[in-house]
Design a binder for these strands. Structure first.
Length: 201
DNA sequence: CTCTGGATTAGCT
DNA sequence: GCTAATCCAGAGC
């Protein structure tokens, strides 16, 4: 048996994983490992909470009214990173899904830190582990994701997502999405039941 | 051009 | 529980 190094343990998710139904991708991203190679310092975390944004069907999605300069990345083929700036001070990171031109994405709302604790603590200016990435803007801060990372291809070597555990349906919780005023009725938030790194409500 | 409010968070009361 | 912080995209005129 060859020795398995921590970073070779997981395989990068292929393009096909992302080019599927958005709600399916949002559920299946749970348990996968989100990785940022920040100038050689690896930061990674297990995805524990996501939300789906379904473009033209979804008044809460940035792409509801079609393509603009801000949301153009959401119309790329699945497997790109859509980063947007909001509330005058925060960034949020989304995984683009479906085929080119569709305009759907999955918001990464929380991860359980796995690797790179020191770097995350520096970026977050925080000593505790529990609150490093249990919210969409916290996650971006902890992972060093901002405007420059918008449009990053997740099949490249800087930011990617690795296959890991498949969370069974019985362990996935659903609810309405957080912090929106339009299309609130859709239960398109997904999280790992009982995981303490899911964001507070 | 102007105005409104937002896929949030931290820090108070 | 409440709200300030602090930009800027998108809508409306």
């Amino acid at each position: 048996m060859p020795k398995r190094e921590p970073n070779n343990k997981f395989k990068k998710l292929p393009r096909k994983f992302y080019e599927r139904d958005t709600l399916t991708v949002a559920r299946e991203l749970l348990g996968k490992i989100f990785v940022h190679n920040l100038q050689g310092k690896l930061i990674s975390g297990k995805i524990v909470e996501t939300e789906a944004y379904l473009g033209e069907k979804d008044a809460a999605a940035h792409t509801y009214r079609g393509k603009t300069k801000r949301n153009e990345v959401m119309f790329k083929e699945g497997g790109h990173l859509y980063v947007y700036f909001t509330y005058g001070m925060h960034y949020c990171a989304n995984v683009v899904t479906e085929q080119e031109g569709v305009g759907h994405a999955v918001l990464l709302r929380a991860v359980q830190p796995v690797e790179g604790f020191e770097t995350m603590r520096e970026l977050r200016k925080l000593d505790t582990v529990m609150e490093l990435a249990n919210g969409p803007a916290k996650l971006c801060q902890a992972f060093g994701i901002a405007r420059a990372q918008n449009g990053t291809d997740l099949l490249g070597d800087k930011i990617f997502i690795c296959d890991a555990e498949c969370v069974p349906a019985s362990r996935i919780g659903t609810s309405e999405r957080v912090g929106i005023t339009k299309a609130k009725e859709f239960p398109w938030r997904f999280f790992i039941k009982g995981n303490p790194f899911v964001s507070n409500l």
